[in-house]
């Protein structure tokens, strides 16, 4: 049974990969600028924010929950950090990052407690905290942008690793992508090699069995929301390191994009299914679509239509694959 499940996820990821390759080839034929290291770094850099949040969303989805409050958490963390840096320009990057992650973790803890202690359905609990936090932040800031971050902070965002010649320039990997990769590795380790990780899959697969096997469902559930909140905090740092100022309105509604990335990458909103590798493919697919539509000069009025079609095709290919797989299985069973 486990083998079957493994095969399924494998084929799912392969179909996403195939779509990315087809898109990349088409876009490159129209515009050779697409397949350059510098373009890849640029698009992954701006999408790393969504990627980090999607990696936080992944365990939540696997456990059968959903976190709509990532948009308010990233806003809250960004504003807290902005105000903190304005008040303490002599601080350092470690404190700034930790502060953001702690604030995010606390926001996640509240979600976790609402879901586990008060038994509020996740979609309602996180919708509630999202609305409250967002409204409170807007009251506090009046929507005014926060700028004037210290130079040491901004220059940290310009750090690049390595030197790769590309399109006549020498580019390095931006630090924001390093964040994304580190988060990916951490999430993969947690899901694959820890008891907590196995618990997340177990709870998402079947709560009752998970309880009987001895998993502490409350603890697992609380953990995934804290994890999601913490990563939203890290995403806030990543964002400010790119855009250099804080617009409290910019992330309202971003939770849908984040969920879309995770689901495109093969996670199931029903729980129990999802991998880090798949989520990475989801991030790349989303980034390629957004970037590619401009590069192949699709008219702005049609970009969203094309985007919708690509998302539908990706998901249908997956559904069809699964159906074929299933049909084949039944056949084999009969023969045996």
């Amino acid at each position: 049974m486990q083998k079957v499940w493994k095969n399924l996820t494998k084929s799912k990821e392969i179909s996403i990969l195939a779509i990315i390759v087809v898109l990349a080839v088409c876009i490159t034929i129209v515009n050779p600028n697409f397949l350059t290291v510098s373009n890849f770094f640029d698009i992954m850099r701006s999408n790393s924010i969504y990627g980090i949040m999607a990696l936080g969303m992944l365990p939540v989805l696997i456990s059968g929950g959903i976190d709509l409050s990532v948009s308010s958490t990233i806003t809250l963390c960004a504003v807290v950090m902005g105000k903190f840096l304005q008040a303490n320009p002599g601080s350092n990057i470690v404190v700034a990052i930790l502060l953001c992650m702690v604030v995010g973790a606390l926001a996640g803890l509240v979600n976790g407690l609402l879901v586990t202690k008060f038994h509020i359905p996740p979609i309602v609990a996180t919708l509630g905290t999202q609305t409250i936090v967002m409204a409170a932040v807007l009251f506090y800031t009046n929507g005014m942008w926060i700028s004037g971050m210290p130079d040491w902070f901004l220059s940290f965002g310009d750090i690049q690793f390595g030197a790769i010649p590309s399109a006549g320039k020498v580019v390095g990997m931006p630090i924001q992508i390093l964040f994304l990769i580190l988060v990916g590795i951490a999430t993969w380790l947690i899901l694959k090699y820890t008891l907590m990780g196995r618990g997340i899959y177990a709870v998402g697969g079947n709560v009752q069995s998970a309880t009987r096997v001895g998993y502490n469902v409350s603890r697992v559930t609380t953990f995934v929301y804290i994890y999601s909140g913490t990563l939203a905090g890290l995403a806030a740092v990543t964002d400010i390191l790119i855009v250099k100022q804080i617009d409290p309105n910019t992330f309202s509604g971003c939770e849908l994009d984040v969920i879309a990335i995770a689901v495109l990458g093969g996670a199931s909103v029903m729980g129990g299914i999802g991998t880090v590798f798949g989520t990475f493919l989801g991030i790349i697919l989303m980034a390629v679509i957004k970037n590619g539509l401009v590069l192949v000069r699709v008219s702005s009025y049609w970009q969203k239509v094309v985007m919708g079609i690509i998302i539908l095709v990706t998901i249908s290919v997956d559904v069809i694959n699964r159906r074929i797989e299933k049909a084949r299985l039944v056949h084999v069973d009969v023969e045996e």
Partner: peptide
């Protein structure tokens, strides 16, 4: 060069769209 590029009233999107734009139309 093209129809207006929409950015959903977001600074982030204006940023990444402009990057794409400058690469597409050097």
């Amino acid at each position: 060069v093209a129809d207006p590029f929409p950015t959903d009233e977001s600074q982030d999107l204006a940023y990444s769209t402009t990057q794409d734009l400058l690469k597409t139309y050097p």
